[in-house]
Every structure is written in C-alpha cells, then in structure tokens.
Simulated scan of single mutants.
Amino acid sequence: MSNLLINKAFKFRIYPTKEQETLIVKTIGCSRFVFNHFLAEWKDAYKETGKGLTYSACSAELTKLKKELVWLKEVDSIALQSSLKNLADAYTRFFKKENKAPRFKSKKNNLQSYTTKHTNGNIAIVENKIKLPKLGYVRFAKSRQVEGRIMSATIRRNPSGKYFVSILTETEVQPLEKTASSIGIDLGITDFAILSDGRKINNNKFTSRMEKKLKREQRKLSRRASNAKNNGIDLRDAKNYQKQKIKVARLHEKVMNQRNDFLHKLTTEIIKNHDIICLEDLNVKGMLRNHKLAKNISDVSWSGFVSKLEYKAKWYDKTIVKISRWFPSSQICSHCGHNSGKKSLDMREWICTNCKTHHDRDINASLNILNEGL
C-alpha cells in the first residue's frame, strides 16, 4: 500500500503580545476591506458588462490601491492577496452552481480571520513559538508536532477573545490495514448513532446540558445591553456588557470543543475498525426547517460527523457508501426483507409478520442500511 499525499490542518492556540494583537486585528480589518472593495467592483462590472473581473485584474488594481490607501501597507501583503483569491474562488464556485454568490463580510461576524501563504520560510515553528509574516515570533500552545510541508496559516480571533492559528500542511499518510469488516450506521436523536453491530452511541446533548447556564448568562447579557442603551452608552463602550459577551462566547466555545472532540474520537474509531461504512444520505438542511427538531439536530451535528468520516476515509483508503434518503430502512425486516408498511415513530420494537423475527427499530434500520450499502 503506497502512502498518500494529503492536506492536513494543525490548530493551536496562540498568545500574541498587545502589539501583535493590534496588528492581527488590523490585518483582519484590511483583508475584509479588500474583499468587500473588490466584491463591490465585481458587482458593478457585472451590471455594466455582463462579465465579472479576473483575479489578475484585481491584483493589479490592489497594487494601485495601496498607493492611495497607505494603511494597507502596514499589514501582511500576502494576506490581502489571499483575500482576493478567496473572492475569485467564491465566484468560480458560484458560476459552477456549487455555492451562493459571495456576500459582503461584516465586522459583526462571529469568526474573524485572515490567511497567509508560506514563502521563503516566512512561516516556521521554533520551539514554543511560531514565526508569522509581519507578526514575528508568537508564543503558542504546542500540543503536538506539525508534520509535513507548511503551505499556509490562518490566524483567527474567536468571539471569546482567544486567538488561534491553523497551519495547513502537505503530508504523507499511510493507509490503514484492511479489517475485512463493514458497518451500517443509522443516525438518530435519542441515540446519536446506532451501529449494525448492535452498539448504540449515546447522544451527549452538549448544548442541552449547558442550556440552563447558557440561558442564565444570555439573560444577563440582554439586561446589560438594555441598561447601556437606557444610559445612552454605545455597546462597544459598555464594559460590563463586553465582559458578559465574552463570558457567553466562552460557554458556546466550550460546547463546540466538547462536540468536536466527541466526533473526532468516534469517527477515528469507526474508520480504523471498518473498511466499508454505509449510511443514509440525509438532507440535514431540509430537516433543520422543522422547528420542533432543528435544535436537537444542530446539537447532534450529523453534518460534522459525516464530513469527518468522509475526509478520514479518503486519507486512510476506506469506503463510504451513502444510500438514498428515501430507502425505507425502518420499514423492512432485515432478516427476510419483508416490508409490512409504515410504522409510527413511537413504535420502537416490532415483530415481522412474515418471519416472526423480533426487531429493535433502530438496530434493524442500521442492518438494512448495511445490506443496501453493500
């Protein structure tokens, strides 16, 4: 089995000094300005000529813009070019009907970041510090070794006020040994996943467990916002409001980290132990329109689970098989294949009228998903 070249990201928390922090915020702001400026130009050009702009035309225009707006020279020039490249790529995907048209970036977005490319050793790791363009050496929490050739780095500021760097590398991975084992997975809400080997993976309900605390802190945030407004204070200058805002953001971040950790451990275990993984091709977007289920569905994060399974399968030479979402996995007897018609959701166990096999509804569904997938 030959090794496979893949792109892999390594994420670390960074601890910038006050000066570095200021420069990061400036770079994020300038990258956003460049994106929005050229998006407006792109839209104008499209209205007038029926054609958009090109990356190279915008790049030449950016050089002129820097002479007019001197403050653009204070930040990493590669980050500004990356912002342009992101815009051009977003339009390419839009014309291929892969995503919606690019929209203007807002200061109020939860996620604020910029990306810079690796050239001539401008991104490097030296002991417990990472060298980044314009920022110099930044202290970081080195939780593991970075493997492979560094390609780029994305610097991000979370709503909680913490800073992170995500280093993208090109590295070799070794395909895992074949196990000659296949598994069917039925995703649920009561249990997160039901596997065809009879296991039920507990739904940890990360958001629900934190709900009381979140509600309490969010109510506090609302009170502080209305107090500031009543006293004629701008929210940006209301210290108590800003402190509380960070507290709420940190709670949300904690939930997200717990969920991510759970999904990574589960997907790695499934990929290691099985060669073929069969699951339903779920329409999560459509399901989220159901207001009764939306909260529970976003809490279990099926999309995150499936995307992690997919890229890990690609890395380690395993196979993901998606079966049609219209396949009646809950209605068919996995033993004899008889379909005795639709069963209401509250029927958790049933006996096949044809072969008299007793079924647990969810395990039966996962067995049908496996059989159909194979």
Score class of each variant (00 low, 15 high):
I130Y: 15
Y91D: 02
Q112P: 02
K134M: 03
N110F: 07
P102C: 08
K200G: 08
I78C: 06
T169E: 02
Y91P: 01
N120T: 09
E127S: 12
K117Y: 05
K117H: 03
A180F: 04
S82F: 05
F164H: 12
N203E: 00
K100T: 11
K178R: 14
G188A: 11
T154G: 07
M151R: 06
I183C: 08
G121Q: 15
L111N: 09
N203R: 00
K97W: 03
T154A: 14
S196E: 10
Q112E: 10
K117T: 10
K205I: 01
L132R: 11
R156H: 01
N158G: 10
V173P: 11
Y114V: 07
T179M: 15
G148F: 02
N120I: 03
K142I: 10
A124Q: 07
T115E: 14
R156Y: 00
H118F: 05
K117F: 00
V126D: 12
S166L: 13
V126N: 11
V126S: 09
K107Y: 05
S82W: 01
R139I: 10
A141P: 02
M151Q: 04
T169A: 02
Y91S: 03
K205G: 00
P175H: 05
G148T: 10
F140S: 08
K107C: 01
A101I: 14
P159G: 05
R149C: 00
N128Q: 11
L80W: 07
K162V: 05
N122P: 01
S83T: 04
E127T: 07
V126T: 11
K129C: 07
T115H: 02
K178Q: 14
L176A: 06
S182K: 14
I189Q: 01
N128L: 01
K131Q: 11
L187E: 06
K97Q: 14
T92C: 12
S113V: 04
F95G: 05
S113E: 13
K129I: 01
E98G: 10
K100L: 11
P175E: 01
Y114F: 15
P175Q: 09
R139E: 04
S182H: 08
R144A: 05
V165T: 06
I155Q: 09
K131R: 13
T207C: 03
A101S: 15
Q112N: 12
F104V: 06
V146C: 10
K205Q: 05
N128Y: 09
L187T: 07
L135E: 05
A90L: 13
N158D: 15
I183T: 05
N120F: 13
S106K: 14
K85A: 13
S106Y: 09
I189T: 02
K96E: 12
A193H: 03
I78M: 09
Y163S: 00
I150W: 00
N86S: 14
T115A: 08
N128T: 11
F206W: 13
E98T: 01
K117N: 09
K205T: 01
G148N: 07
N99W: 09
